[in-house]
């Protein structure tokens, strides 16, 4: 449809939104980048702490043991540094949630009450992530936690402990917990994707004698490729931005063993009160995210 009216009348639809976005989103983003180079972006108050203009903060962050801990990496012990923790997070969380999401979505499509189970799994997406973090800590608790209950049932009582309070297990517990929370996302998106696959292609394969595994990998997965790209992009973004869960359960501890980028930024801001350094961590976080966002944006704008 060719809408009539002047450019001005058309832009009047956009102006209110863009005023808010420019002031409270775009300008702050630009200002954060500027601040990371020690240039004061906010009038009326100097928050650079008088550091010289330059890229020095970036060296400082990149060389910081909070960012990458060489000792931890060499000895394979925690903490290994925030960026490494984020990478570990992606390396474990991404494949686990994708495989679980795909399998469960397919399964739930064909069992009795599948949609009810699906809504159970989705609960992790509904609740505040801060509660999600507390629930993770709760479930890994030595006495109260359901994880240790299963260890006891299966005769592994000796292994029972409060998993989130030990450096070597804190991060892994949180990652497992985040699988529990985020699988609701992958199951839901894959279910929507499955619903858009013609069910006759699956039935044709059933008549031809294909079993579940063959149908899943030869018929379903190839047809879900665009959905999978979306799921991968959104999951990586979520993994990189992870904050609430860690804040609620371990605060990045013990001793930085579960520190992640978003929390490191908060650490510089609130505890150290070094705003340019906080801005630098935020900018690095954004740069790390950027390639994934570009892929996601391409995916969305393509085929319009």
């Amino acid at each position: 449809m060719k809408a009539r009216g002047s450019i001005l009348s058309k832009f009047s639809f956009l102006i209110p939104s863009f005023i808010l976005i420019i002031i409270f989103v775009i300008y702050p983003i630009v200002a954060t980048i500027i601040l990371s180079f020690n240039i004061n972006p906010v009038p009326g108050i100097d928050i650079t702490k008088g550091k010289p203009i330059g890229a020095e903060n970036y060296y400082e962050v990149l060389l910081s043991f909070k960012f990458i801990n060489r000792h931890g990496l060499e000895t394979l012990s925690f903490p290994m540094g925030a960026i490494i923790h984020n990478i570990i997070w992606i390396a474990l969380h991404l494949p686990l949630t994708i495989i679980l999401g795909l399998l469960l979505a397919t399964l739930f499509q064909h069992v009795k009450g599948g949609s009810i189970i699906r809504s159970f799994i989705f609960l992790g997406m509904v609740i505040p992530m801060i509660v999600g973090g507390l629930l993770i800590q709760f479930s890994f608790d030595k006495d109260l936690g359901v994880v240790n209950l299963f260890l006891k049932i299966t005769g592994l009582e000796w292994a029972a402990r409060s998993w989130t309070i030990y450096p070597n297990t804190a991060l892994f517990s949180l990652i497992l917990g985040s699988v529990w929370l985020w699988t609701g996302f992958t199951v839901t998106i894959y279910s929507a994707g499955l619903a858009s696959i013609p069910k006759e292609t699956i039935e044709a394969a059933v008549v031809d004698g294909a079993d579940f595994k063959t149908i899943l990998f030869k018929i379903i997965v190839p047809q879900l490729k665009p959905v999978t790209i979306t799921v991968i992009a959104m999951t990586i973004l979520w993994d990189l931005k992870i904050f609430d869960i860690v804040y609620a359960s371990t605060l990045g501890g013990p001793g930085g063993a579960s520190m992640v980028l978003a929390l490191l930024m908060y650490d510089y801001f609130a505890r150290v009160q070094n705003y340019p350094m906080a801005a630098t961590v935020a900018t690095i976080l954004t740069i790390v995210i950027l390639p994934v966002v570009v892929i996601w944006v391409r995916m969305i704008t393509r085929g319009k």
Partner: peptide, 8 residues
């Protein structure tokens, strides 16, 4: 099948 259900 009605829509032929070829694997796309």
């Amino acid at each position: 099948f009605q829509n032929w259900a070829l694997y796309p």
